[in-house]
């Protein structure tokens, strides 16, 4: 197991470098950051030259990337558009988005798996058809439409919840944004679980378990769920990154000052350091989540053993 973890961590290194380099090139290489800083005005050539020199913009891109990355590993992500260190922004924004992601993840995992299991056990009946139809509808409507509609009805018209998230992002304010963020993934989880459960109900080991007289509860939790959840866990793991990126939309609707908000500010104010910094951290989270999923495999499925 230990050796496997080390091998996977080493495999992550080139992917990490490639992904961050790609983002770096997109942000720094495709546009002209100095011209962007000045907007419509033409910068004074001497000033522009000075800024170019300070930001190492005259060096080749790969060298800029190297300088940036060596600073990142010293804990310096550069400065945002208002000269605030990006590290400070990271420290304030990430906990907020993390809370939102946790809320969304819990809703997605608990509700999605529950719906999927019940639908899978009642295949072809009313509940199953209902879940299938509902999930299709949820997937077809863009998240931001669902967000605004729910916000309008629950927040504004009926005043059941706060229409926007207050200072410090308390958990009760995050319930609705979390539900909106989880929506589409929840539908996928429910459908995936349903298919997986439905396939496993016909498996030999289940028939054996029932035949030897085990209580239904034990058959479902120990025999069926453990086998059915393997593809679901994969999906949930890779979805953590998508949830954090999806926060871009949710945070805008509900006025949450998290990662999405900061990335958006970085783009509006033409601050490449902010964008690259936030995205880099997100990529690390994404890669670590994938590693975690692979390790969870061994726990869920003893047939897979890592040398």
């Amino acid at each position: 197991m230990g050796r496997y973890v080390i091998r996977r961590l080493l495999q992550m290194v080139p992917v990490f470098i490639g992904t961050t380099l790609l983002i770096f090139v997109m942000v720094w290489g495709l546009g002209d950051p100095v011209a962007a800083m000045f907007g419509d005005r033409t910068p004074d050539p001497a000033t522009a030259a000075q800024i170019r020199h300070d930001l190492h913009l005259n060096d080749p891109l790969i060298q800029q990337y190297w300088i940036y990355m060596s600073n990142v590993f010293k804990g310096d992500f550069g400065n945002a558009w208002n000269q605030q260190p990006v590290t400070d922004l990271l420290k304030t924004a990430y906990p907020v988005t993390l809370r939102l992601t946790i809320v969304a993840f819990l809703i997605e995992a608990i509700v999605g798996v529950a719906l999927g299991v019940f639908a899978g056990l009642r295949r072809g009946r009313f509940f199953d058809t209902g879940v299938l139809a509902m999930t299709l509808i949820v997937v077809s409507i863009p998240t931001f439409v669902t967000g605004y509609v729910l916000q309008y009805f629950f927040g504004v018209k009926w005043s059941i919840v706060h229409p926007s998230v207050g200072e410090g992002a308390p958990f009760k304010d995050l319930l609705m944004p979390g539900l909106v963020l989880a929506g589409v993934s929840l539908a996928y989880v429910a459908r995936l679980t349903r298919t997986s459960v439905a396939e496993n109900t016909r498996a030999d080991y289940l028939r054996t378990a029932v035949a030897k007289g085990l209580p239904r509860r034990r058959v479902i939790t120990n025999h069926m769920l453990r086998n059915s959840l393997i593809p679901v866990v994969t999906f949930l793991g890779t979805d953590i990154g998508n949830l954090m990126a999806g926060a871009l939309v949710t945070e805008r609707i509900f006025n949450i000052h998290g990662v999405g908000y900061q990335i958006y500010q970085g783009i509006v104010h033409n601050s490449p350091a902010t964008v690259v910094g936030f995205v880099t951290v997100l990529v690390i989270v994404f890669l670590l989540a994938n590693l975690l999923v692979d390790l969870l495999y061994a726990v869920l499925d003893p047939r897979i053993r890592y040398a």
Binding site: V15, T19, G246, I263
Partner: peptide
């Protein structure tokens, strides 16, 4: 490996970064 790299970027996030650039 190349597809792993592109896979490492959530599509919505990449969209905002790429298209704004």
């Amino acid at each position: 490996r190349v597809s792993d790299i592109f896979f490492g970027i959530p599509i919505l996030l990449g969209g905002v970064v790429f298209l704004s650039a």
